[in-house]
Design a protein around this nucleic acid. Sequence first.
DNA 1: CATAGGGCTTCCCATGATGGGAAGGTCAAG
DNA 2: CTTGACCTTCCCATCATGGGAAGCCCTATG
Lengths: 146, 146
Amino acid sequence: MVNIGEASRASGVSAKMIRYYESIGLIADAARTEAGYRTYQPGDVETLRFIRRARDLGFSVEEMTTLLALWRDKSRESAEVKRVALGHVADIERRIRELEGMARTLRHLAGHCHGDHRPDCPILDDLAEGIVSPAQPPAAKGFLRP
Amino acid sequence: MVNIGEASRASGVSAKMIRYYESIGLIADAARTEAGYRTYQPGDVETLRFIRRARDLGFSVEEMTTLLALWRDKSRESAEVKRVALGHVADIERRIRELEGMARTLRHLAGHCHGDHRPDCPILDDLAEGIVSPAQPPAAKGFLRP
DNA sequence: CATAGGGCTTCCCATGATGGGAAGGTCAAG
DNA sequence: CTTGACCTTCCCATCATGGGAAGCCCTATG
């Protein structure tokens, strides 16, 4: 039976976000005191901690909705949970590959830039002309400009 | 002397974004015909292509502002360009590490999930209790919940 | 010349997840 | 009874991007 501030401290989810999650229906509307204050039971705080951990693992609100439903469904199939988790992993890996392509290209360009007082700079040359040397990873450009 | 649609096609930047970049001052206000249509010179299109490439490398609008200024400044020091580029690389690498921590944890959890018709699931168990096994990469959790 | 269609204009709204802050009600301790 | 901490709702901002409406403009075709 705690207020939103206490629930926030106990779960690591900000009060702002708790209200937001309620407003979009990720969590049920909290019970209220006569004065209109939201109150949370231990089980609610547990749910918030679940959300906090899922969020830290990069799950979207939509995915968290699915995970919460599975968590509550005692007759779930673990295969479904695994599917959601691995789908998210695939998503993360795709983003990592994107970022790695960018970093690779930039490191390559920076490696050819004197980095001194002179103005000549292959980094700007590439941005301007797109004549970036193919270098080892031709995948970088292909990935970014398909 | 082309319209915004032609400039968009030639640069790979959508007309919407060209107008947006103008509105926030990333690019100068385009010249207009008597009827109010924006017109673009070859040099303007070149600038848009520069922006397109910078964007594809993950630079923010703020960073693009800096890069465009350096590009135009013929007395720039390449060291500054390199500094901006490497700063961005560091940023990308930080994001990659974050994502890798998430992926590692999730792959670990999923590896221990039967993924069949039974409801038992270490993935949900971890989200609920945070008892995730430390596994090889204890960095994953420490990274996410500092 | 009139009309159709495609292109252009501005303006408003939405995204996702989060925070900031204002105006005002509530509660507990002094 | 006052003070300060806490709560409420509501609005706005972020960042880069797209959707769409209402209305003007231009050109090709009948």
